[in-house]
Design a protein around this nucleic acid. Structure first.
Length: 267
DNA sequence: GCGACAG
DNA sequence: ATCTTGTCGC
């Protein structure tokens, strides 16, 4: 029979999770991780001369209601890689019942984002992205399998993870990264490689714009090399955050704001 | 044991 | 993630 801690959450809006959930999540992460590809695996090219060029780059983000933290707006945008203009945009309002647990962001956010991708594929949308940027880490993650990798493997799509804050892993913490960024020998570099205590490379801390001291953290999501990911991120940064992510963020906030305005009107 | 911990 | 105004600077 179920223990009290397992029954009381059944009808709760803001559900918590058990150690059993965590165990299942880790198992699923490890299963998906077997399919992870950390090198360039796509047919398009970046060069102008190429027959098949990278043209459609997607970005996904989720914004939350300030009133009800389980109410969210998930957004998928697709930009033209050359002009960085939006060519496709879709969103979905959802109630997220899975809480945010550090290391398991994908179990909260991936389902609704995958739905948005699936909808495009199902309708044979010509703007279906050739590459997807995700706000959240790829392999820069305790299990080496963050949200960007989770979405990449599940959707079988090349993905890049972009974190705005560092997820501490393998001895990499804020102070260590700041020291590296401030070191004289690194002062002119626009990114530094994040090598952990184990010697493993997890991604890079990138100064996407010279003036912005605060870096972004770029890591492999799926089917792309770190080197290619860096190049593409640099090519899509008008500001600190690469445009596909930034536009998705702006759109989802905008949608949430409009919804809350109409909700206030009903009260 | 205590603190840290993407969004 | 979100709560929050102005402010300094290009």
């Amino acid at each position: 029979m179920a223990k009290p801690s397992e029954t009381k959450e059944l009808h709760s809006q803001d559900s918590s999770t058990s150690s059993q959930d965590h165990h299942n999540w880790i198992t699923e992460q490890n299963t998906l991780k077997d399919k992870l590809i950390t090198e360039d695996c796509f047919t398009w090219k970046l060069s102008q001369e190429s027959e098949e060029r990278l043209r459609y780059v997607g970005g996904v983000d989720i914004s939350f209601s300030k009133n009800d933290s389980s109410m969210a707006c998930a957004t998928l945008v697709v930009l033209d890689f050359n002009t960085l203009q939006i060519v496709y945009q879709d969103f979905s309002f959802v109630t997220l019942r899975v809480p945010y647990v550090p290391g398991f962001l994908a179990f909260r956010e991936a389902p609704v984002l995958l739905d948005l991708l699936e909808k495009m594929k199902r309708t044979n949308n010509p703007f279906y992205p050739q590459l997807l940027m995700v706000d959240g880490n790829g392999i820069l993650h305790p299990q080496g399998f963050g949200l960007a990798s989770h979405i990449g493997v599940t959707a079988n799509l090349p993905t890049i993870g972009i974190g705005k804050n560092l997820h501490h892993v393998d001895g990499l913490d804020k102070s260590r990264v700041m020291k590296l960024l401030e070191a004289k020998e690194n002062s002119s570099k626009d990114f530094i490689t994040l090598v952990g205590s184990s010697g493993r490379t997890w991604g890079v801390a990138m100064r996407s714009k010279q003036r912005s001291l605060k870096p972004i953290f770029v890591s492999i999501g799926h089917r792309i090399s770190l080197q290619t990911a860096i190049t593409i991120i640099q090519m899509t940064c008008k500001y600190r955050i690469p445009e596909p992510i930034r536009q998705a963020d702006i759109s989802s906030r905008d949608y949430i704001r409009k919804i809350e305005m109409s909700a206030v009107g009903l009260n």
